[in-house]
Design a binder for these strands. Structure first.
Lengths: 127, 127
DNA sequence: GTAGAATGTTAACCGTAGTTAACTTATGAT
DNA sequence: ATCATAAGTTAACTACGGTTAACATTCTAC
């Protein structure tokens, strides 16, 4: 039973990045992820090993990176939290874009499912 | 020039715990911190070494732990974020106490000064 | 088709933050 | 005062997540 394994903040960041790059229509290469997250290719390589082991991505040796169905689901989850938090910061608290982006990036790893759900509902009411 | 050195989430947790235990009127022992944070005494010992090195606590060999003025300031900063976030979660989003506590514990390390300030101001307006 | 550039992989390393186990020091009850 | 227990320290280890450097593979331009 594929339980929702806990991902580290780092793994969540990688997943989210892969989704963003995929959605932009590009095939996803390690080097793109490295540039996006400002880490080395070697770090990406290690992280992809982890995501591959838990079945969230597929990548042939020297090949491109693809989210599995599971992986896409988890990535969307992270991205949705990010977008929600940034909207809150920018539209409710009126934080400037760059700071909101930075804070959302860090907060997105910290909130529970319950909090995300209720926060989303609340935002829909007040905006 | 004592700049506001960046603290790791872990260090912030230790500082916050020391403040909470001090404020409860107790002299702070390593073992109390260990129990509060559910970590080993050895972990506390290492962490205290770090906080001592950057001048946020004082502790004689085998002695009790005291916040320095700097340390108390930083600890209050963390605790204030925690309290604010928990109030938001409980009173605005109506998250249950236990979940709110857990989430606040993680979010408190993620928000910038600007966000904290504006969030606090916003809370004062709406509550 | 091949050479050079770009990309991917691997190995060895670092710092952080935790652990357990063995030890030292302090405390408190008799 | 002493001795058992509680508390603090230290050492050796683990896992994670990053790094650089060297190497392997793939791509691309000619």
């Amino acid at each position: 039973m594929a339980e929702k394994a806990n991902l580290s903040p780092s793994s969540e960041d990688y997943l989210e990045t892969i989704l963003e790059l995929s959605d932009a229509g590009n095939a996803v290469r390690s080097v793109d992820i490295a540039n996006h997250l400002h880490v080395s290719k070697a770090s990406v390589n290690k992280a992809m090993g982890i995501l591959r082991d838990i079945g969230l991505i597929e990548q042939a040796h020297y090949g491109l990176i693809h989210l599995t169905e599971q992986g896409r689901f988890r990535a969307k989850d992270v991205l949705q939290r990010h977008i929600m938090l940034k909207r809150f910061l920018v539209e409710i608290l009126q934080i400037n874009d760059a700071t909101a982006e930075r804070d959302a990036c860090r907060m997105e790893h910290a909130i529970s499912d319950e909090t995300r759900t209720k926060w989303l509902r609340w935002l829909r009411e007040v905006l």
